[in-house]
Simulated assay, not measured.
Amino acid sequence: MAEVIGVRFKNVGKVYYFDPAGNVLKKGDKVIVETSRGVECGEIAMENRQISDEELVQPLRQLIRVATEEDLKKVEENKKKEKTAFGICLKKIAAHKLEMKLVDVEYTFDNSKILFYFTADGRVDFRELVKDLASVFRTRIELRQIGVRDEAKMLGGLGICGKPFCCSTFLGGFQPVSIKMAKEQGLSLNPVKISGICGRLMCCLKYEQETYGELLRSVPGVNSVVMTPKGRGVVTDNNLLTETVYVRLDSASDAPTQNFRAKEVRVLKTGRNSVSREELEQLRTLEGN
């Protein structure tokens, strides 16, 4: 077992373990630590606790110090520098006529490196841009291409639900989301209705998937052949949350469908409610990063 603290470097980001070096820290405290990127200022997201050695990535880096007033002033100065660097980089991108969109700029705490985050449709040859930026800022320059989901997480905004993006408020990382989830939850496969502002499938499709998966095991799917208290029929629709199925009876194919509780019917043949190949190809682009 080892005593650790959890440090986060972005408002909503991954939590990294560090050796507290004998300090007892509270959630929200600012600390200075050494990372693979250099010396950084982070915030305590997890207070002192014991963690098994199997959960740790060795070697465990040690806390340098609790952030001082001078350190916090430096962080604020870096934020001002980032805004200036953003404007300069935009002009340089335009000068080099590069097909890329600058998203964010980040200074490391010790100013040993400046990171420029951007999106682009394909690969971008930014070697000349890096040289140009290095001649201006006189420090190490790193250009990092990110996906559209990462862009949304960095910039923030409001989703179609009217609330701030999940990714920029509480999601520490992105979970895989698939077209299958939308299909199993009975959602419209209209890309406008199931994709977020980033143009990819909404992260919230993941939240209830486990529940829908359980319900799908007990509620017959669309096109299933079932035996009901009123005879044999085919399921035309279902409501997973109420565990109800709508059945067109073979004995009254022209009559309106009748609804039954899922436990009242017995599945004779499982149906397939598939998506056409053309439709699937159009929707595949929503599953990327």
Score class of each variant (00 low, 15 high):
residue 233 G to A: 10
residue 212 Y to T: 00
residue 258 Q to H: 06
residue 217 R to E: 15
residue 246 Y to I: 14
residue 112 S to R: 10
residue 25 L to A: 05
residue 64 I to R: 02
residue 24 V to P: 01
residue 230 K to Y: 09
residue 267 V to M: 10
residue 99 E to I: 01
residue 129 L to D: 02
residue 183 K to C: 08
residue 121 D to N: 14
residue 6 G to E: 08
residue 185 Q to W: 04
residue 36 S to H: 05
residue 198 C to R: 00
residue 274 S to G: 14
residue 77 E to S: 12
residue 47 E to N: 02
residue 159 G to V: 05
residue 54 E to D: 14
residue 19 D to R: 01
residue 152 A to V: 03
residue 108 T to P: 07
residue 1 M to C: 13
residue 230 K to L: 13
residue 274 S to V: 10
residue 199 G to P: 02
residue 23 N to Q: 11
residue 219 V to R: 02
residue 109 F to A: 02
residue 211 T to S: 03
residue 172 G to P: 02
residue 207 Y to H: 12
residue 31 V to I: 11
residue 259 N to H: 14
residue 161 C to R: 06
residue 87 G to C: 06
residue 207 Y to E: 08
residue 125 D to E: 13
residue 3 E to D: 11
residue 32 I to P: 01
residue 46 M to F: 14
residue 47 E to Y: 11
residue 143 L to Y: 06
residue 15 V to Y: 03
residue 27 K to C: 14
residue 278 E to D: 15
residue 75 V to T: 01
residue 219 V to S: 01
residue 223 N to Y: 10
residue 119 T to S: 07
residue 46 M to C: 10
residue 229 P to R: 09
residue 189 L to W: 10
residue 277 R to E: 15
residue 61 R to K: 15
residue 264 E to A: 12
residue 78 N to Y: 07
residue 22 G to N: 10
residue 8 R to C: 08
residue 276 S to N: 12
residue 230 K to R: 11
residue 116 F to E: 00
residue 189 L to V: 08
residue 157 G to D: 09
residue 142 E to M: 05
residue 87 G to P: 04
residue 120 A to S: 15
residue 59 P to G: 09
residue 111 N to M: 12
residue 33 V to C: 01
residue 227 M to C: 09
residue 5 I to R: 00
residue 27 K to E: 15
residue 226 V to P: 06
residue 261 R to M: 13
residue 190 N to L: 09
residue 93 I to C: 00
residue 149 R to K: 14
residue 154 M to Q: 10
residue 17 Y to P: 05
residue 253 S to N: 04
residue 250 D to E: 15
residue 126 F to S: 05
residue 175 Q to I: 04
residue 213 G to L: 13
residue 14 K to T: 14
residue 132 D to S: 15
residue 130 V to W: 02
residue 110 D to I: 07
residue 44 I to L: 07
residue 37 R to A: 03
residue 169 T to E: 09
residue 188 S to V: 02
residue 100 M to P: 05
residue 130 V to K: 00
residue 47 E to S: 12
residue 148 V to D: 03
residue 33 V to F: 06
residue 231 G to P: 00
residue 74 K to W: 11
residue 199 G to T: 02
residue 229 P to S: 07
residue 250 D to G: 03
residue 263 K to I: 10
residue 68 T to W: 09
residue 59 P to D: 11
residue 170 F to K: 07
residue 263 K to L: 13
residue 61 R to T: 14
residue 270 T to Q: 13
residue 13 G to Q: 07
residue 260 F to L: 07
